[in-house]
Design a protein around this nucleic acid. Structure first.
Lengths: 156, 156
DNA sequence: TTATGAAACTTCAAGCTTGAAATAATTTGC
DNA sequence: GCAAATTATTTCAAGCTTGAAGTTTCATAA
């Protein structure tokens, strides 16, 4: 995945392959740095941050399945992460009257406060780590990344 | 990480944050698709593919530590993946005379043949999944991604 | 009704991943 | 030479991740 043959290859499709390798290396580097800082500064993890970020947008909460779809991870995965967040008092499950299979998951008051602090740091880290990209360039890159999403997304 | 607040936020730094979210979602989607196909078609995993791809470039082999640096994963991680590849007969460890702490890890004949087949499929998958990106656009995107690597890389 | 199927979750085993601690071998400084 | 520091690797516990199998609840319809 990450490898790029050393005598730089050429041929049809090689440019896309190279793009993918770069994309993956970029996101892995940034992820590694964020994970490290989240651990050092806030004693938390990236998956927990992801879940809290998703919930922060929606005070009324989300279903487990919505959460898993939104975060692009499996159902069973979310169960474990939410379990840990619940045991830390940052997240709460609320059984619903209508459908007893589902439960709304939401940030607790404490979780919401904690997340706001972490999110502020997170945003400034991103600003630092992507500092070489101008705001304008960032917008253009974002647009280009959008364009190739449609190709495989929404198939499941 | 993946979350983007729904009432689209604005302000200084928001464009970089949005870029990061897109970048991460893009690479996660593609990774998920590749992982699925590697499993279905070749009964293997992304980490194993990564290790084999790294080794394929260098017939004489790599040290464990070079492998871990190259793949941006921890040392202990590589140990486990290489262990499994060795038990599958795809990779071999060779103790060196010079330095008995280290061992050269290389693809076996079988591993090399197997990888060539998988790599061809992989490249065509990438061509398919990034089909919306023209070759020209791919080159430009790659260049832009390069530009912001230097900002945090090579710090450790 | 009531069975049949679908949907929302959880559980589970296997594998991946990390950071820290442990081992072993080499290098450095005295 | 030899202690101390460094380097290369493995081991380990904890957590993340997946796909598959299992449970409970709901929806459909004969």
């Amino acid at each position: 995945m990450v490898a790029g043959p050393l005598p730089t290859p050429s041929g049809p499709g090689k440019d896309r392959l190279r793009l993918w390798v770069r994309l993956l290396r970029a996101s892995r580097s940034i992820e590694a740095e964020l994970r490290e800082r989240l651990r050092q500064e806030f004693n938390t993890t990236l998956p927990r941050f992801d879940v809290m970020a998703a919930l922060y947008r929606v005070p009324e909460g989300m279903l487990m399945s919505d959460l898993s779809r939104f975060l692009l991870v499996s159902n069973g995965n979310v169960t474990g992460i939410v379990d840990r967040l619940v045991s830390e008092g940052l997240v709460a499950r609320a059984r619903r009257n209508g459908d007893r299979r589902t439960s709304m998951v939401r940030l607790t008051e404490e979780g919401s406060k904690a997340f706001a602090v972490i999110a502020a740091a997170h945003e400034s880290w991103i600003g630092e780590l992507l500092g070489n990209v101008s705001e304008d360039e960032a917008r253009r890159l974002t647009g280009m990344l959008n364009s190739f999403r449609s190709n495989w997304e929404g198939r499941e």
